[in-house]
Amino acid sequence: MTEWALALFRPSDLADLSGQLQLRPTRPRLAGARQADARAAVVDAFGPPDWRRLYFGQEFCERRAPSVSDVRRAYATAASAGLAFSLLTSYVSDGGLDRLRPVLAWLSGLGDPRIEVVANDWGVVRLVAREHAPLRLVLGRLMNRMLRDPRIVPGLVAARAPGDALSALRQPSLAAPVSRRLLAQFGVERVEFDNLIQGLDTDFAAIGLGASVYVPYGYVVTGRACAIGSLNQPAADQFHAGTACRRECLRYTVTRRVAPMPVADGHREYVERGNTCCYLQDAAAIDRAAAVARRSGIDRLVYQADLPV
């Protein structure tokens, strides 16, 4: 049985949780139409939503990490809808850890045993395990470093990549016994994945790990030098980790269409928001996610209401 979690990434998304839970498109025009198609594909593949959790926060940008007041509001919103709460956290610098500490302190002070922290940085894993042990640690999708290149992976799959290559591309190192020992040491009971184009070939139920899959947006790359975040900076101060952005990611989304296609079957459209590039999975990809979930014992679907930045 797959439970559903709704992932929201902006405090403003909390205003209409009811609408979000009904999977109303949140983007305008063509992007919204595509979002509606993806929503229909997810429902077709996984069945009607069985909402259990609200994910809230940021996986990709420490500057967009929610404040204590944002998290307090998100937690209350989740509770009012009868949902458990998971805090999404990003890869972080020490400055990002500084911003995260009071949020973790507030959450751990609630004493709610259902609260999860989705960690996407080993530093966050260590911090939570050592200083906020009541919070349940989840290893986020950025912690599994499997190949996600939509330009070439469809071609590798279609051509049945030679030797053991395809098999290797489908297995996470997180499933190895030595990794499970590490996860147990830090109290991690759940690991998360993107909906990988090549599929996923591990029986999580058999190895005693909870597993989640994110739809309908797949992430490809992310980094600390934000293209759009440099828009309003002097030329000599653009495109580096220290650029003082004005949160231009909240205003613009950039779409790029591949031309010419270097490899047959490669994905053709990429969407950048802020420091991260994603792609929208089509109905066939989402259908494969449902098949993989059934086969691999993936017991949670994380539905991203919008691009995860």
Partner: peptide, 20 residues
Amino acid sequence: RVGAFCVDLARWDPTFERTD
């Protein structure tokens, strides 16, 4: 067969959409 993703990405023409 594909090269660095960042190089490819920069080569593909962007279109811009405002969140509003």
